[in-house]
């Protein structure tokens, strides 16, 4: 896989390259406009029509999911990408804690499109982005600046049955760099006693990574493979003599084992 990434610049361009440059630009524009329209028109109308905060949030999350589903269909129809998902059933379980790697800009779009009532943990700076702010707030997404507040807010979502989606790499990974995975999700799992559903996202050829301009489309249409791994059961802190911080490290190691195995072998479990 790595060698294929390095070979990318010399690969022959195929699949209507310049059309895809145009279509990708169009996709970015749609996304920006949709965010602005949602924030300036959609959310105020939603607030006026529905007073109940809980229902407001449910409606906003539903709208985000439907928009992301539509957006992905559009990118497929435009010939920008194809995608497939393996074993999606655990994603729709109530109160699932979903933890994924973060190779590209569309990762959250794919996951949220597959998960009803999803609550995402997002980079705090996105809350100061005028295009995103309205929708993020209405959907009750959680910023990551204060870790303890983040854990509490996420735990209360899990308790109410909303799946929580986290990208512990924090920021999109450079293709050739080892990911720095934070232990926030493992902390949430141990402290809220919730199993982790690990997800590996592969995008070939790599694209929309950090520091890559929008017009830098890959030499051929990209293919996303989303693999849902076997659940990592919660470690019961009450049954263990070890401090919580050690249990968190153990749970974190399990998630990393799955993600590293997927990256290295493409197989979700050792016996398959």
């Amino acid at each position: 896989m790595r060698s294929e990434q390095h070979a990318q610049p010399t690969q022959k361009r195929e699949g209507y390259y310049y059309w895809r440059v145009l279509a990708s630009g169009f996709g970015f524009a749609i996304f920006g406009v949709a965010g602005l329209v949602a924030g300036l028109v959609g959310i105020p109308i939603l607030r006026l029509c529905i007073r109940d905060r809980v229902r407001q949030q449910a409606m906003a999350r539903h709208a985000v999911q439907r928009f992301f589903q539509w957006f992905i269909r559009m990118t497929v129809n435009l010939g920008i990408l194809t995608w497939s998902v393996e074993n999606p059933a655990p994603l729709t379980r109530r109160g699932a804690l979903i933890v994924a790697n973060h190779p590209s800009l569309l990762d959250v779009v794919f996951l949220v499109s597959l998960i009803p009532d999803a609550c995402c943990i997002v980079k705090q700076s996105l809350f100061s982005n005028p295009v995103m702010r309205g929708a993020l707030t209405a959907a009750g997404y959680i910023g990551n600046d204060d870790p303890m507040q983040m854990l509490e807010a996420a735990a209360s979502n899990l308790e109410q049955g909303s799946p929580v989606v986290m990208f512990p790499e924090g920021t999109r990974t450079e293709p050739d760099q080892a990911a720095q995975f934070g232990r926030g999700a493992a902390n949430l799992s141990v402290r809220a006693q919730c199993p982790i559903t690990p997800v590996f996202i592969r995008c070939e050829p790599t694209t929309l990574t950090r520091n890559e301009p929008w017009y830098q489309v890959p030499y051929k249409p990209m293919h996303y493979t989303i693999t849902v791994g076997p659940a990592c059961p919660a470690i019961d802190a009450a049954q263990s003599a070890s401090p919580v911080s050690i249990l968190v490290r153990r749970q974190h190691a399990r998630v990393m084992e799955f993600l590293n195995r997927m990256a290295a072998t493409g197989r979700p479990s050792p016996d398959r």
């Binding site: 303890m148 509490e152 735990a155 899990l158 402290r191 006693q193 802190a237 401090p243 919580v244």
Partner: peptide, 10 residues
């Protein structure tokens, strides 16, 4: 089960 506790059994 959903309490966030910063427990310290050490």
């Amino acid at each position: 089960p959903h309490d966030i506790t910063i427990s310290n059994r050490t």
